[in-house]
Design a protein around this nucleic acid. Structure first.
Lengths: 229, 229
DNA sequence: ATCGAATTTATTGTCGACAATCAATAAATG
DNA sequence: CATTTATTGATTGTCGACAATAAATTCGAT
């Protein structure tokens, strides 16, 4: 993941609980800690060689980004991925990123728009080399979305999308993958969105982003069905 | 505040940190702990007669609902209310509650719709008695919005609106008030929204809710200007 | 007298141990 | 034999003390 992916709310990991959070986010998103599995505080504390205090703080933040679910006096479980969950998540993502796109068209300055276009050119070049390689596409796609969200200049929106929803989105995408033909199509959609933003057409940018996300959702739903969940 | 206001995620305060959270949420929303003031952990721990452990957990949750802001190794401050903050908050609220309204029109069952209509009749009756009394109106308004959000049946949406955004919304409303003429107008808007939901017209319900919230926002913005902030 | 650096002070982050609560097993009774 | 009730076990929630970091103050130099 590149530097530009970091939201302003991701502070560099100064504290133990910060490091733990990053480590556990990665482990859960990539399935290293299995979806649906129960989390034992003493066990994880030993594993990461820390006390339960920073671990519990990290877990509170994991709950905040919907990666685990806690029940008082009972324990915590890693979330399970499901078709219903995906639907609910993407309903919100469509709405909020549509808004972000509209606001970005209004609030991004010329420099930021130029940077966004340069980013797309970079991805296009690297995509020609690695045809259909999903990892780079994913990083590139996330980077693209991140910049637009930041461009909205709305702190609450940035917080919700980058800090609360995006890890779960990544979890669906990493664990359920993204197949070939969708990858190149996504580039064209990105291009259209940037054009709308560059011409300050917030309404169009909104619409295009919603469709872009809806298409992405359809792609993952297909995978879910194929796996027979 | 009535019983029905509670979201499913508000568990009864079984633990110390739960009690602390409720207490501090109320204190901040009502301005008992002044906006912008710094929070001292040892001081509050003494005041509420608990250890710092549950206090810190409560503070983590206060940060989650945007009532305080923390900086690592530096401390926490209560948020300050501003015109920019209100604008950013209501931009999101408009979008998400519009979505909630559309989903409610699709997903609420007959019984829930009937209950919603009964609720409005109750409020109308009590409003005739207490003309322009803002406290009851506020509770009633919140209750109305809560039920629609729950009716969306989208867990993420419910969590975001009821647990993360609504305390800040209440803080603006409680500390900046809501004046007379707006109160009765809100009833008519509520009525129109319910009708749209009852006739399963999600699109209309969405539109009406957005306007309702925009009007409410305009009302608070006016107050902010009058106070010369 | 003012600016900068070192020291002091206070606050936050972390630790290990204890208490309270819940789940599971085993015993007892109809 | 089934159902209920204790008992055991483990996990979570809470506490008080310590260590690390940042802010405040004092002291010294120009």
């Amino acid at each position: 993941m590149t530097e530009t992916l970091q939201s302003p709310l991701w502070r560099s990991p100064v504290t133990s609980s910060d490091r733990l959070l990053l480590e556990m986010q990665r482990a859960i998103v990539e399935g290293e800690i299995a979806a649906g599995s129960k989390i034992s505080e003493p066990e994880l504390a030993r594993k990461f060689d820390v006390s339960r205090a920073p671990l519990r703080e990290a877990m509170a933040r994991l709950e905040r980004c919907h990666l685990i679910e806690r029940i008082p006096n009972a324990g915590a479980r890693v979330v399970t991925l499901s078709a219903d969950g995906l639907k609910a998540l993407y309903q919100i993502r469509e709405e909020l990123e549509g808004l972000a796109c509209r606001l970005a068209a209004e609030n991004m300055d010329e420099h930021e728009v130029n940077q966004l276009q340069e980013l797309l050119d970079q991805h296009l070049a690297s995509q020609r080399v690695r045809e259909g390689e999903s990892y780079y596409q994913e990083a590139g796609d996330l980077d693209f979305h991140y910049r637009i969200i930041l461009g909205s200049k709305n702190p609450y929106l940035i917080n919700m999308l980058c800090d609360e929803l995006y890890f779960l989105v990544r979890m669906y995408r990493v664990q359920l993958g993204m197949n070939g033909p969708r990858v190149s199509r996504a580039f064209d959609e990105h291009k259209a969105i940037i054009n709308a933003i560059a011409s300050r057409d917030g309404e169009l940018a909104d619409l295009l982003m919603r469709r872009h996300i809806a298409a992405s959702r359809g792609n993952i739903e297909l995978k879910l069905q194929q796996l027979g969940k």
